[in-house]
């Protein structure tokens, strides 16, 4: 008798078990599947603060579990989780004054690379970007979102998303020491 491969239980089935019977093992399975990606994303958006990132991930799961019944499975669960995590990150950054709304007219001084530090680590450079730039860069260049999707998630126009990405990349090059700083550079 030949052994047959058993298909893994889908996210939707696990979610139904959580909603139906409050199945803890189903939750743990979902947690193990999606937390590493969610945590890495949140950690980057929060600028590398591990404690804050863990708090956001916990809040994300609580909020997601509360609202599982409203999730229509038209997108993947991890995309939905990323959206919840992103909103929670923005709320935290706003509350602590670290988030500036990404309006087209916003003028932001582009900082030069730290003096005496010609080349810095890529992750460190991402963490040094202003939160708005950082978020657009992470969503587009790392997570692979389109500008239309970023615009929808952040409540800005596609043009703003594009210009923020351009500024973010320019600042990244400066922080990485491959683009000379310009005095009084503004966006």
């Amino acid at each position: 008798m030949r052994a047959q491969a058993v298909a893994p239980i889908t996210d939707q089935v696990l979610a139904e078990r959580i909603m139906g019977a409050g199945d803890e093992s189903a939750f743990r399975e979902l947690y193990h599947r999606h937390t590493p990606r969610l945590y890495q994303f949140v950690l980057r958006v929060m600028g590398g603060d591990e404690l804050e990132a863990e708090d956001v991930v916990q809040d994300t799961w609580i909020k997601a579990t509360r609202n599982l019944a409203g999730f229509r499975w038209e997108s993947k669960l991890d995309t939905w989780l990323t959206g919840i995590g992103l909103n929670l990150c923005r709320n935290r950054l706003r509350t602590s004054g670290r988030w500036t709304d990404l309006d087209e007219g916003t003028l932001r001084r582009v900082e030069a690379a730290p003096a005496g530090e010609a080349r810095i680590d890529l992750e460190k450079a991402i963490g040094m970007l202003p939160a708005g730039y950082r978020t657009v860069l992470i969503l587009h260049d790392i997570e692979g979102f389109k500008h239309s999707e970023i615009a929808e998630r952040l409540g800005v126009s596609e043009g703003t998303s594009k210009s923020q990405l351009w500024s973010a990349r320019r600042q990244m090059r400066r922080l990485l020491g491959s683009d000379p700083p310009e005095t009084g550079d503004v966006q």
């Binding site: 803890e24 939750f27 743990r28 937390t35 590493p36 591990e50 916990q58 609580i62 509360r66």
Partner: peptide, 24 residues
Amino acid sequence: REREPGRMLEERTVRALREEGLIV
């Protein structure tokens, strides 16, 4: 694209969900 958080986070989260009655 992935990174493991601290081990305590899972238990913290499970406990919070239990307290809310979302899981048993």
